[in-house]
């Protein structure tokens, strides 16, 4: 297991927190929470070591497309980059979709 940290700048504060996913084989758990400032700090725990560069590429791409300031925690059990991107998008969607979040 290794722990990775990344930081990004964001201008749009997150509206409300969101939780998606499960730490299951090939999947991951993501927590989005509002941050205190206009920065985004990402903390990743992953069971698959040695993929820091790929994580950076996936996150770079996500934040290039989505301007958001949030505190993000990821617990990963070997999700592929495609699954990670999908879960990140889902977490953002849930944080914006009040009804879904309060289901």
């Amino acid at each position: 297991m290794e722990t990775l940290h990344y930081e990004y700048q964001g201008n749009k504060p997150l509206e409300r927190r969101a939780h998606v996913g499960v730490v299951a084989s090939g999947d991951l758990e993501i927590l989005f929470e509002p941050s205190d400032d206009l920065s985004t700090k990402v903390k990743i725990r992953t069971g698959s070591e040695g993929f820091a560069e790929i994580w950076k590429k996936v996150l770079d791409r996500f934040f290039a497309m989505n301007d958001v300031a949030a505190r993000i925690e990821i617990n990963d059990f070997g999700a592929t980059p495609g699954v990670v991107s999908m879960r990140l998008a889902q977490a953002l969607e849930v944080s914006r979709d009040h009804e879904n979040n309060e289901k």
Binding site: M1, G47, E73, N75, D76, F77
Partner: peptide
């Protein structure tokens, strides 16, 4: 779990 190198869930 973390001390054993296993990713936990919240």
């Amino acid at each position: 779990l973390e001390p054993q190198g296993i990713v936990p869930e919240n």
